[in-house]
Amino acid sequence: MQHEYQYFPITVPGKGAGGQTGTWRFVRPVVNLNKCIGCRACWMFCPEATIHVIDGKVEVDYDYCKGCGICANVCPVKAILMEGEDQ
């Protein structure tokens, strides 16, 4: 039996709970796949879970990446560069 006035403070896990956070970004990580060795350091430290390693290579989910630059900083082979969004 459902009661239309009953509404509970519960939420479900989902992407974008803070919005389309890719719009916050003013610099974007660009991965040089020729340099990438698939070590996953960027994946490990990404605070937004927007780095995906597919077939040993890195992809960035630009819908949500906030452009903090941690991935570029931790990359041991400098395969990720931060570029201005206007470029």
């Binding site: 896990p13 992407k15 974008g16 709970a17 803070g18 956070t21 916050w24 937004e48 819908d63 949500y64």
Partner: peptide, 16 residues
């Protein structure tokens, strides 16, 4: 445990 698109500041260590 963490879904993309949180309300955290960029570079948030707690998300890490």
């Amino acid at each position: 445990s963490l879904m993309s698109g949180t309300s955290a500041c960029p570079g948030c260590p707690e998300n890490i």
